[in-house]
Design a protein around this nucleic acid. Structure first.
Length: 692
DNA sequence: TTGCGAAGTGTTTTT
DNA sequence: CACTTCGCAA
């Protein structure tokens, strides 16, 4: 197994010395404390990555073999970056450290030991929307739920099931605490969950959660494999520990061996993945789980000026439960953060665009500027303004390349070639044939074992008007097994192109998407590797584009989630508090509101020199709130307002035009108002109401 | 049964 | 506003 998980063959070159003068005292302690459990609480901008990098290099310099170090990170990009930097301060041995994301690590291990968990090695991976499709199929089989309007839709069922898995709770527990509106359907949802598990097993497919859960099961039930892995990895480091969930911390617990050389690094104040089951209690509880754990706090900030830190410290200070730490810097001076209030969204966009132009005139490069948004589409209006001023930008977050319909179509064919039991992919590709709907697809699926056995399409299918098309499809799927990924993809695209011309009309962009998929596939030796890579580490188009043409004269638009760990000289946070942060759903949900606060904190702490918080003053007129006239955002925004008024650190610009009536949104018939007064009983007693 | 247009619904973030 | 589900005609 070593050949599979690890990467041997490096050239020995051991003369380099590491310069520890680069580190402060806390960082040095974290780097050189190599034995036993260590928790590093690393505030934003405190040199967390640097510390991990130096620790890697230090371990290798001490003679630890790189393959026995396991580095688990949140994204592939950050792990590669760390290995590269470690190599640059020591030598190339550092590039052979094992690791990646939890999911990719699990994928590799599970494929290797697939027999032990009753899966075939060629299992395919469902992304969230594939998983929802499968859940939809199962829901329609359980016919009794079909007609009920209030039954949760498939993506909600998927979210409930995933939440239960990731927090190691049961469906009834999750439904009663997180989705009380569906409490009547608890049993139905649980039945769907059971069906979903069975279907995944028979289809030889796993969703993202399974990758983690099956790894836990493997380690828990098979002590030989567990000790083999424990022996392999004698030093384990986990980055972004505050974003791990219960399942991930269980994986760590079972990988750690008797020497307990485990280091967790993270910042509870930046925990923003609770929707994925992460809980910052994980990092709070870490020292209790590992006796004798050393806790090291990194508090010196090397990123932002003091005026920016004053604001960010104030934002996080009122958070309910956290490790006490106050970030400080030796850069006392700097521009005060600026709050800009605009009458509407388009004024916000015009302000940002114009200000970016003037920053550029003052010598700030576009690559040093970022606009951060809560959600991908919040920047739609801004993008138009940027385009009209010829300001080039790259956008991160939101919809992914591999989530577009045509790419998913093509990948479905490939997945079937690898694993013809994948019912979701069959359903998808069959329905692309004219005249085939859910019913015909289901019939075909039922006949699949017969088709496999005889190697032919049964006569009753050939007779149908879509018979010839079905025949071509089955030949494609069952006739391409042994080709290389590139060749296979060529055949698939050849088959798919006519279908796809029919389905979608903006073809040229889509064609080029398929071309780039083709070029990626060419880099892999097996279909298995290509598909794993593309589902678990999708290509970062923008990063590749930038690297290719050396055009880094682009500014960045990014969701806050995708901006984690990065920094820019100038940061605009748009549609902030009065607009969409916190998102309106967080009314009445204390925990969610706390997470929104941490999200704001993450956004603000990206800034090195200049920080702009720009918000349209919507006053209850936003699209989402239009239904609830009379509700304003002012309760939510007060916490930021207080920060502005009680300190001297922010100056406020207010752009005033004539306030538009109601943004041209037509008033809707008025439903009953949600109650927000103290005297009103909470509509749902199990949720705590929370007011500023 | 499929496929299309109408109506309705509930809004994030990502591996 | 985008996506899903509904209802109906072929």
């Amino acid at each position: 197994m070593k050949e599979y998980i690890l990467k041997p063959n490096y050239s020995l070159k051991t003369n380099s010395r590491i310069d520890f003068n680069e580190l402060n005292a806390a960082q040095f302690e974290a780097v050189t404390t190599t034995e036993g459990p260590v928790l590093v609480i690393a505030g934003a901008g405190s040199g967390k990555t640097k510390t991990l990098v130096y620790r890697l290099a230090y371990l290798v310099q001490q003679g630890v073999s790189p393959e026995s170090i396991l580095l688990l990170t949140f994204t592939k990009k950050s792990s590669q970056e760390m290995l590269r930097r470690a190599a640059s301060i020591l030598d190339h041995r550092c590039e052979h450290v094992s690791g990646g994301t939890f999911h990719s690590f699990a994928n590799v291990v599970l494929r290797h030991f697939s027999d032990a968990i009753g899966y075939s090695r060629s299992f395919t991976i469902l992304d969230r929307s594939d998983a929802d499709e499968l859940i939809g199929l199962i829901r329609s089989q359980l016919s009794h739920v079909k007609t009920d309007k209030r039954f949760p839709k498939k993506s909600t069922i998927g979210a409930i099931i995933s939440m239960a898995v990731n927090t190691t709770r049961t469906i009834p527990e999750v439904v009663s605490t997180e989705y009380p509106q569906f409490i009547d359907y608890t049993e139905d949802i649980d039945r769907i969950r059971v069906g979903y598990q069975t279907q995944k097993k028979t289809g030889n497919v796993m969703d993202y959660d399974d990758l983690l859960v099956k790894l836990v099961e493997l380690l828990a039930s098979n002590s030989e494999i567990r000790s083999e892995l424990q022996r392999t990895y004698s030093y384990i480091m986990v980055d972004e520990y505050q974003d791990t969930n219960r399942v991930q911390s269980q994986i760590i617990e079972m990988l750690v061996n008797n020497q307990r050389n485990i280091m967790a690094v993270g910042d509870d104040a930046q925990s923003i993945y609770s929707f994925r089951g992460a809980h910052f209690k994980n990092i709070i509880d870490f020292p209790r789980h590992y006796d004798g754990c050393r806790v090291i706090a990194l508090e010196q900030n090397y990123r932002s000026s003091q005026p920016i830190l004053n604001l960010t410290n104030a934002v996080i200070r009122s958070a309910a439960q956290h490790y006490e730490k106050t970030l400080f810097t030796d850069r006392p001076d700097g521009q005060l953060p600026v709050v800009v209030e605009t009458p509407d969204e388009n004024t916000q966009s015009r302000f940002v665009a114009q200000h970016i132009l003037s920053l550029r005139e003052n010598g700030i490069a576009l690559r040093d500027i970022v606009v951060l948004v809560r959600s991908g589409w919040h920047s739609n209006d801004l993008e138009v303004e940027l385009q009209s001023r010829n300001i080039p930008f790259q956008k991160f977050g939101g919809f992914k390349f591999i989530e577009t319909a045509h790419v998913k179509d093509v990948l479905a064919y490939l997945r079937l070639i690898q694993n013809s039991s994948d019912v979701v992919s069959w359903t998808r590709v069959l329905q692309l044939i004219d005249g085939v709907g859910p019913k015909a697809a289901a019939e075909f699926w039922d006949a699949l074992s017969e088709i496999r056995r005889t190697g032919e399409l049964p006569r009753r299918f050939i007779q149908k008007k879509y018979g010839p098309d079905l025949q071509t499809l089955t030949r494609l799927i069952f006739g391409s097994m042994s080709d290389s990924p590139g060749v296979t993809l060529d055949r698939v695209i050849e088959y798919y192109t006519p279908l796809f011309r029919v389905s979608y009309d903006d073809h040229s962009k889509r064609v080029s998407d398929l071309d780039s998929l083709r070029s990626i596939a060419g880099r892999f030796s097996t279909l298995d590797l290509f598909l794993s890579e593309i589902s678990l580490e999708p290509p970062d188009q923008h990063a590749e584009a930038v690297a290719d043409d050396f055009d880094d004269e682009k500014m960045t638009i990014s969701t806050i989630h995708s901006a984690k760990g990065l920094e820019w000289k100038v940061v605009f946070v748009i549609s902030a508090v009065d607009g969409f942060i916190p998102s309106f759903q967080s009314f009445g949900d204390m925990a969610q509101l706390e997470e929104e606060r941490r999200l704001l904190y993450v956004a603000l702490t990206r800034a090195k020199d200049q920080l702009y918080i720009v918000k349209p003053n919507l006053d209850g007129a936003s699209g989402a709130f239009n239904r609830f006239p009379g509700i304003t955002f002012s309760k939510v925004s007060r916490f930021l307002e207080d920060l502005i008024s009680n300190g001297t650190y922010t100056e406020k610009w207010i752009l005033r035009d004539e306030r538009p009536k109601r943004f041209g949104l037509k008033p809707r018939s008025t439903p009953a108002l949600p109650e927000f007064g103290d005297d009103a009983p909470p509509s749902d007693p199990s949720r705590k109401k929370y007011f500023f």
